[in-house]
Structure formats: C-alpha cells, structure tokens
Simulated scan of single mutants.
Amino acid sequence: MAGTAKTNRSEADKDPSEWLPPAASAQCAHWVATELRWKLTADDKERAALEALAKGRADTVVKYEVAP
C-alpha cells in the first residue's frame, strides 16, 4: 500500500505493536494479508496488537495469494 514519504519514514521496520498507519482501514487486514502472503511469523506482542485491532471487525475478509 502506497503512503507518503513521511509516513513511510515514521513506520521504518516497526510492526503493529509499535506503529499503525493513520488510515484505520489499513491498520489490520493489509498487514495480515502481507504476513500470510509471505508466510511470515508474528511474535506475541505483534499478535496481541493484531488481535486487538481485529476485535469488532468479524466481518472483515482478508484476501491474499501465497507468494511463489
């Protein structure tokens, strides 16, 4: 997902437990889709942050394709 240079610099290499994009619509599903696509793992702190973001969003569908 494209963002401004300022937003990209503020994110650096932080995960959702340390940084979230300003747009609420991009805060959870896009991150989870990227993790699933690339078969990445999440540590406990990151998982807790994602679970907190997902609360109340049971109707959100995460679409992704596994990377080749």
Score class of each variant (00 low, 15 high):
Pro22Asp: 15
Glu65Asn: 11
Val32Gln: 02
Pro16Lys: 04
Ala12His: 07
Asp15Pro: 00
Ala67Lys: 09
Val66Glu: 09
Thr7Gly: 01
Ala26Trp: 06
Met1Val: 13
Trp31Arg: 10
Met1Asn: 06
Asp59Gln: 14
Glu65Gln: 13
Pro21Asp: 11
His30Thr: 15
Ala24Cys: 02
Ala12Gln: 12
Ala2Phe: 08
Gln27Ala: 07
Val62Glu: 06
Cys28Asp: 07
Lys39Val: 10
Leu53Pro: 01
Ala12Met: 10
Glu46Gly: 01
Glu18Met: 09
Leu40Glu: 11
Thr34Val: 06
Ala58Thr: 13
Lys39Met: 08
Asp43Arg: 03
Asn8Pro: 00
Ala52Gly: 02
Ala58Val: 12
Lys45Ala: 15
Ala29Phe: 00
Glu18Ser: 08
Ala12Asn: 11
Asp43Cys: 04
Thr4Val: 06
Trp38Cys: 06
Pro21Cys: 08
Thr34Met: 05
Pro22Met: 11
Asp44Asn: 09
Ala12Lys: 09
Ala49Ile: 07
Ala24Glu: 15
Ala24Trp: 05
Thr7Val: 15
Ala58Lys: 09
Met1His: 07
Tyr64Lys: 07
Ser17Phe: 03
Glu65Val: 15
Ala33Ser: 12
Thr41Phe: 01
Ala52Gln: 08
Lys63Val: 15
Thr41Ala: 04
Trp38Ile: 06
Val32His: 00
Trp19Arg: 07
Ala58Trp: 03
Ala2Trp: 05
Thr41His: 01
Glu35Ile: 15
Thr60Val: 15
Asp13Glu: 14
Thr34Gln: 07
Lys55Arg: 10
Arg57His: 12
Ser10Cys: 09
Ala48Lys: 09
Asp59Pro: 00
Lys39Leu: 11
Glu11Gly: 05
Pro21Gly: 10
Ala5Trp: 04
Lys63Cys: 10
Ala12Cys: 08
Cys28Thr: 12
Ser25Ala: 15
Ala52Ile: 04
Trp19Gln: 06
Asp59Arg: 10
Arg37Ser: 15
